[in-house]
Design a protein around this nucleic acid. Structure first.
Ligand SMILES: [Mn+2]
Ligand SMILES: [Mn+2]
Ligand SMILES: [Mn+2]
Ligand SMILES: [Mn+2]
Lengths: 220, 220
DNA sequence: ATTTAAAGTTAGTCTAATCTAAAAATACCT
DNA sequence: AGGTATTTTTAGATTAGACTAACTTTAAAT
């Protein structure tokens, strides 16, 4: 079935909310995520249910059907592949790619996305470290943890970020932190859960609990 | 001003019709070009006139304003740059690129189109030999003529095609004709204006008047 | 110069996607 | 359990972009 960009965005929102909250997505949560009035969401949910994309029961929240989930995954695939293209081929920095990919992801051509995938050499992760589903919708899993769960003495490498907001990514730029950057945990401060971190074996800095929570790393 | 994809498509249609017919575009011509009812065109013309994009006077046909012309040119720039990307980077064949570029052209980011331009090494012509306006909207001019105007004995090289329809381009593929292919005119047949052509110094074939009219060449 | 045909516009309707205001259902609290 | 707060849905409007049917203007033909 041919989906509109708007319908696709709703499916993506439902997918991401379910992933984040590990339960069905509520009307208000979707409204906040998309930035529309709850009444508009209700309208759309009825339409999506009519197209067998979601399971919807009044007042109960929604889940994606198998079919709806497949569509959402393919959209995420397109989004992340375009982000890789923008970053690695057009040299956009990681805070600039998301907004442009929001538009590019709606260009629908199976051939296009698969050729793009090949052109980029089948990347497994996007510029923010998020996994890119393959043509069959399968994500690559990887051992990673929040920096907050690392302990003093640990050496870790940055694999991804949970937050994609421009101002946050620019904050990381300012600290010369990017994917692949290595951290050594020097100390954990119990009173505010902040951490003293040695970046790239050269600069020491303090990272707040909030920032540490966002950074996804693995031990090296 | 922020234009919708639909508005942009109307501007492009008006631009191309004016170019082809060398006069102002009429409601019916636009309707045929876009594939909508004439009444819908009238609606849209009023809106475009309200936004200062076209000069519109009831029953008189329309022309683009300077501002509208600039928008149309930028849209054509985006379209043709994406066609180059699809053909030269993703290895799409020339008959496949147009439909996908029809969607990609509406992704609006000045930064994106300029970086794409640089990534492609500032191409001057698209996969059909059409000129690509630069960031300032300037087209590269080039001496070219229709194959129909060549004479027996002339050696020419194919620079472009006036017709982009899939079935026509596939017909050329079948004859192993692509941009850069060299032709030697062996004979001109007055009764039906067809031509006997030696392709790439190896294969001789007959090309109809219609086909010769479409092929744009220059002498070598 | 009429008449007829073609081209263009107006009027009214439709759908997708949005909104606000009001009503109904569910959840939370004492 | 009853009352209040929160969440969700309904009702009614709006806007962009499309349609058809009917009307008006302009062009062509006798
Ligand atoms: Mn993103
Ligand atoms: Mn991303
Ligand atoms: Mn094209
Ligand atoms: Mn082209």
């Amino acid at each position: 079935m041919r989906l509109s960009s708007t319908e696709e965005n709703y499916l993506k929102a439902i997918y991401k909310i379910a992933e984040r909250e590990k339960k069905s997505a509520s009307t208000n949560t979707i409204a906040k995520y998309i930035g529309t009035a709850p009444a508009s969401v209700t309208d759309m949910l009825k339409r999506l249910a009519g197209k067998q994309l979601i399971n919807y029961e009044k007042y109960k929240g929604v889940t994606l059907t198998t079919y709806g989930g497949r569509e959402a995954t393919q959209l995420i695939r397109r989004h992340r592949l375009w982000e890789v293209f923008l970053a690695s081929k057009l040299r956009f920095s990681w805070e600039a790619v998301h907004d442009i990919a929001e538009e590019l992801e709606h260009v629908k051509s199976e051939e296009l996305v698969n050729r793009l995938d090949a052109f980029l050499d089948y990347p497994k992760f996007d510029p923010h470290g998020d996994p890119i589903p393959n043509a069959q919708g399968k994500f690559t899993l990887r051992n990673q943890m929040s920096l907050l769960d690392a302990h003093p003495g640990n050496k870790v490498v940055l694999l991804g970020v949970r937050e994609h907001e421009t101002s946050f990514l620019q904050y990381l730029n300012g600290l010369n932190i990017s994917l692949g950057t290595e951290f050594t945990i020097k100390a954990f401060n119990h009173f505010d859960k902040s951490m003293n971190i040695l970046i790239d074996h050269t600069r020491e800095t303090l990272l707040s609990e909030k920032v540490c929570q966002i950074l996804l790393v693995k031990k090296i």
